[in-house]
């Protein structure tokens, strides 16, 4: 009973943070909520064994693994496809959809995407990222480097094309 109450309190306190992480990985709030739900079910299952001072990292790991599972079922999308699914009203200082950071992240393979998010949003070191993703430091370096290169190429191409994608006004994230 207590652990259930603690679990609920933890989720209420950290929900936005965990959801944001899931959105960065999946690119869409709808998918993020699905991933987050399954991850939280896994957390609840082992909640008694989760160290209190490391619960957020534990939940993030669960989200990451659930994201990898869900990504296996979904093909990689093109930049235009993902850009068309974004609603830019939700994000401060949004740029055109094809250059939006969420759209750009979606063209990276799942592990590259997770490495980039861990390094440049979570601000983890390479060693911490390796623990987070369950791989070696060398793999983190490689994933991050290749991910960064793709992001850079995409933004560079976008700057040349000045492409603008108009998103559907009916789509809302919240």
């Amino acid at each position: 009973m207590r652990e259930d109450l603690d679990f609920d309190g933890f989720v209420r306190e950290r929900y936005d943070q965990l959801l944001r992480y899931a959105v960065m990985l999946t690119g869409r709030r709808w998918d993020a909520e699905e991933v987050l739900q399954e991850a939280l079910v896994r957390c609840l299952k082992r909640w008694r064994k989760v160290p209190a001072d490391n619960a957020v990292a534990y939940a993030r790991k669960a989200i990451y693994h659930e994201f990898l599972r869900s990504a296996k079922r979904k093909p990689l999308v093109t930049l235009d496809e993902i850009a068309g699914q974004l609603d830019l009203e939700d994000f401060a200082g949004a740029v055109v959809a094809r250059e939006h950071v969420l759209a750009v992240l979606q063209i990276l393979p799942p592990r590259q995407r997770a490495a980039v998010v861990a390094r440049f949003w979570l601000d983890l070191t390479e060693a911490q990222t390796a623990v987070e993703l369950g791989c070696s430091v060398g793999t983190v370096k490689s994933l991050t480097s290749r991910g960064l290169a793709k992001v850079r190429e995409t933004w560079k191409a976008g700057a040349v094309e000045h492409a603008t994608v108009v998103t559907s006004p009916g789509r809302r994230w919240a």
């Binding site: 936005d16 939700d90 401060a92 740029v95 939006h100 440049f120 960064l148 992001v151 994230w173 919240a174």
Partner: peptide
Amino acid sequence: QDRTVARLRHELGAMDVHA
């Protein structure tokens, strides 16, 4: 690479999702 990293950090940090 530095510019890409700086832009990534800025845009990821600016992204806000609330429930």
